[in-house]
Design a protein around this nucleic acid. Structure first.
Length: 594
RNA sequence: GGCCCUGUAGUUUAAUGGAUAAAAUAAAAAUUUCCUAAAUUUUAGUUACAGGUUCGAUUCCUGUCGGGGCUACCA
């Protein structure tokens, strides 16, 4: 049988006493038990107000009664209590903390998974193939990767997938521009990374398009009309049509340009540590949804308008009528997604299908799930939109057409430069080989970048200021990496502790660390449950911060006694291991030295 | 217009309805004969506004004002 954590032991004990003393019927989960605020004596705090109401007794009376009984019944678990203004503060003896610490550190794998193993599909990073990745994509990638790692850690079976939007008007724009302005240039002849190369032609398209629109407007056409009539746009639309008809030349150019982009994407993915178990290409899946249209018409979920287009009426659900098939018979975005959802289910029989997509698509995802539900698809309920806020600049939203995007490769390289500069200034690793230095810079650069994007609640939009760049000090990845390197440095010298002294007393800084370490599983669970890596990021930072306070005040190697040296060495081991594991779940490596 | 999200120190972010709202950064200062000063310590500064529910509201509800997104026979 698995032993209970301290937290659970306390909760259970309180529950038992309440049942005995007051015949209380509530569940132990409904008890509000917090960590005691530092300005009060104690470790755990039971909030009494809610109980006072249901028990018809004063908070003070309940607190006194429960406190006294706990002390009497479980003197090994509780050493003291105090009732302050409706709060029952309970103290746990040092011995108990150390016991719990040694037990959990010996039994590291006990991040228990009570829930049955589930099959989870996580889709993240679904780029268009007409331009390179930017900072927003990075947030998406890091989130998706991290949540996959966290769910795996919780014992679930995770498949990471990616949908490549390789087809459509956007890539045709780059193709047209390349035909007209490219003069046969390639990434090789220009020395450009493939995705940037293709993105360059996307920009050229927009420049040319804008010029044509302006010219038409100057001739007296309205802007709306001009935007539809611009010859280069017409040409693009014709190209898309030829693509759909399977025109060989069009398909060939399309393939060449997409391959250039993939080469570029792959480099970026590899550098930032993104990987996928399954890649879907829109060009191979975009027709899948059409079978749904027949099915929906038959079952009466969809209806056909006189012009031949097919719709679904969602007004009863507070939404609009939504088109699922154009009058010309071609399918739209939502229809493709219906088909893809089915395909994913056929292939992986998932319990849960997570889509990591920006919150601008909240409506779309709501509709997707709703339609599948109306069609009676059993897997509809497993669909989950992990909606994240977009990364904005101080001036507002990033716009690729206006050239205000923060490019993913650029920002990564910038971080590497910062890492190099700082490392050289500090001069702590002058014995590193060229290769070791290179690796260190990558580790630090990506640590800074990933932590920056993951420390914020995914649901919230975030603002990135290119002027200020990303810090290496304070609430950052490198801060935690540095803390890890410091600990490892101690451990290289200290060796293995021979015994952990159960009866040692704890100094405040030591105890603080034990308390924090005991909270790790709870934070891990929370971040999995909320699908929110920032919980883990915040926790890890607090742990590192707390260690640095300890480090400044106490010496491990020169401890007051051998007993203390062993205890502190053990604490160092556990902190390092926890930091390392938590950071790994965020996709961040931690160095031995820096 | 309709629907959804959002408003916390100068700035970027925390806080299952719980005690005196917490960090970082920017600012001012202090700490290296001692395990890595990418660190630590100290000082000053915040819940848009008005109501309501509650023993208790940053959190829940209503309204006002600000910001954003969606509302395509684009993806």
């Amino acid at each position: 049988m698995q032993e209970l954590s301290l937290n659970q032991q306390v909760r259970l004990a309180i529950h038992q006493v309440l049942a005995e003393n007051f015949s209380w019927q509530g569940s132990s989960d409904s008890l509000v038990i917090n960590q005691t605020k530092p300005e009060f004596e104690g470790d755990f705090t039971l909030v009494l107000f809610g109980l006072a109401k249901t028990l018809g007794s004063s908070p003070d009376q309940i607190g006194q009664s429960v406190g006294a009984s706990l002390l009497k019944k479980q003197p090994a678990l509780f050493s003291a209590f105090q009732v302050v203004k409706g709060f029952l503060n309970l103290s746990i003896p040092d011995k108990k903390w150390i016991e719990d610490f040694t037990r959990t550190s010996q039994n590291k794998t006990s991040v228990d998974t009570p829930r049955p193993r589930q099959r989870v599909l996580v889709e993240y990073s679904s780029p268009n193939t007409n331009k390179p990745l930017h900072l927003g994509h990075l947030r998406n990638i890091f989130l998706g990767w991290s949540i996959s790692a966290i769910l795996k850690k919780m014992g679930q079976s995770v498949v990471k997938s990616c949908v490549v939007n390789d087809r459509g008007i956007h890539i045709c724009k780059s193709m047209i521009a390349w035909q007209r302005f490219g003069k046969g240039a390639t990434p090789t002849t220009t020395g450009m990374k493939g995705d940037h190369f293709v993105g360059h032609y996307y920009v050229l398209f927009n420049d040319a398009y804008k010029k044509e629109v302006d010219a038409l407007v100057a001739e007296g056409m309205t802007k709306e009309r001009a935007e539809q009539e611009a010859p280069i746009l017409k040409a693009t639309q014709e190209m898309l049509l030829r693509w759909e008809q399977g025109d060989a030349a069009t398909r060939e150019l399309w393939k060449i340009m997409n391959d250039w982009v993939y080469e570029g994407f792959d480099q970026t993915y590899q550098r930032v540590g993104a990987d996928f178990d399954k890649i879907y290409y829109e060009s191979e899946t975009y027709l899948l949804g059409k079978t749904f249209v027949e099915e929906g018409l038959t079952s009466g979920v969809f209806f056909r308008k006189p012009d031949g287009s097919v719709w679904i009426d969602l007004t009863d659900d507070g939404l609009d009528e939504k088109l699922v098939l154009r009058k010309d018979g071609t399918s739209v975005y939502i229809t493709q997604d219906l088909g893809l959802a089915q395909q994913k289910y056929d292939e992986f029989a998932y319990d849960q299908s997570i889509y990591v997509i920006a919150d601008e698509q909240n409506y779309h995802m709501k509709v997707l799930k709703l339609i599948l539900r109306k069609l009676g698809k059993p897997y509809a309920e497993g669909i989950l939109h992990l909606s994240y806020g977009m990364v904005e600049l101080p001036t507002g939203r990033m716009k690729s057409r206006e050239g205000t995007v923060v490019d993913a490769d650029d920002i990564t390289q910038e971080m590497v430069e910062v890492a190099r500069k700082k490392t050289e200034e500090l001069g702590k690793v002058q014995d590193f080989t060229h290769q070791e230095l290179k690796e260190l810079y990558e580790t630090l650069a990506l640590g800074a970048l990933k932590f920056y994007l993951l420390r914020v609640d995914p649901k919230k939009k975030m603002v990135f200021n290119p002027e200020e760049s990303i810090d290496f000090q304070g609430f950052t990845g490198p801060f935690i990496q540095y803390t890890h390197a410091r600990i490892r440095s101690i451990l290289r010298k200290a060796g293995e502790p021979l015994a952990i002294p159960i009866n040692a007393s704890l100094l405040p800084k030591e105890k603080e660390l034990l308390v924090l370490l005991a909270q790790y599983p709870a934070h891990l669970h929370q971040s999995a449950q909320e699908q929110n890596p920032s919980v883990l990021a915040n926790y890890t930072y607090t742990l590192a911060k707390s260690f640095n306070g300890f480090y400044a005040e106490h010496s491990v190697m020169q401890a007051e006694s051998e007993e203390k040296r062993y205890l502190r060495t053990k604490i160092c081991q556990e902190i390092a291991a926890t930091i390392s594991e938590a950071m790994a779940l965020l996709g961040i490596r931690v160095p031995e030295r820096m």
